[in-house]
């Protein structure tokens, strides 16, 4: 009985450790998946599969140095399998562009904390109707079509509105990042 109690406690600690690390990394892994598979439904499925594999493998591995990078590696394999299944139909990037996009995504993810702060400010600056639309779309498990029915707007008009709001948010985040970052050019050596 004592032995099984010890195992339970170890498993509990291991589980908590996994939970903490995945909580810290999940948005970066999801951002990576979404960049390579720009479709909410597919990206959600891939995130689910990635989390499953991570949990299974985590129980066998002793120590992981960089949890986020490890998770992204697993996610990348899932994405490649997904591409193979889709037989390149409706895939946005061929092999030559894929590496470029992955590199850009990696650079963007290094600024993740700054982007979160910037996004928080920029959301507050939206007009109240625009913020309401964002809140409903992302705060509820709802598609844009369903959202169009709920707010009683034509779907085409809602796409345009969402495009405008997202573009406005992104421009605001870009401007905020430019202000927040230290202008640390590195001069050439004299």
């Amino acid at each position: 009985m004592a032995k099984s109690d010890d195992l339970s406690e170890q498993q509990f600690d291991r589980g908590s450790h996994f939970v903490n690390q995945l909580t810290a990394c999940q948005h970066r892994i999801y951002a990576f998946i979404l960049t390579l598979v720009p479709n909410w439904s597919d990206a959600d499925d891939l995130m689910q599969e990635t989390a499953e594999v991570m949990w299974r493998k985590f129980q066998d591995i002793g120590q992981i140095n960089d949890f986020c990078a490890w998770g992204k590696t697993i996610a990348r394999n899932k994405v490649m399998n997904f591409y193979a299944k889709k037989k390149r139909e409706r895939i946005l990037f061929d092999d030559s562009l894929l590496n470029d996009v992955v590199e850009r995504e990696e650079k963007a993810s290094l600024q993740a904390e700054l982007r979160v702060r910037a996004l928080h400010k920029c959301l507050q600056r939206l007009r109240s109707n625009d913020r309401h639309l964002i809140q409903v779309l992302y705060g509820h498990d709802i598609t844009l079509r369903e959202l169009a029915e709920e707010v009683k707007r034509p779907i085409q008009g809602l796409y345009k509105a969402m495009a405008r709001i997202h573009h406005s948010l992104l421009q605001c985040v870009r401007r905020s990042l430019a202000i927040m970052e230290d202008h640390s050019w590195v001069p050439t050596d004299p």
Binding site: L34, T35, L119, L169
Partner: peptide, 14 residues
């Protein structure tokens, strides 16, 4: 595109 997806991932974090 990359920054747009990063933004979107943050919005969908919940």
């Amino acid at each position: 595109y990359v920054e747009f997806m990063a933004l979107n991932a943050q919005l969908r974090k919940q």
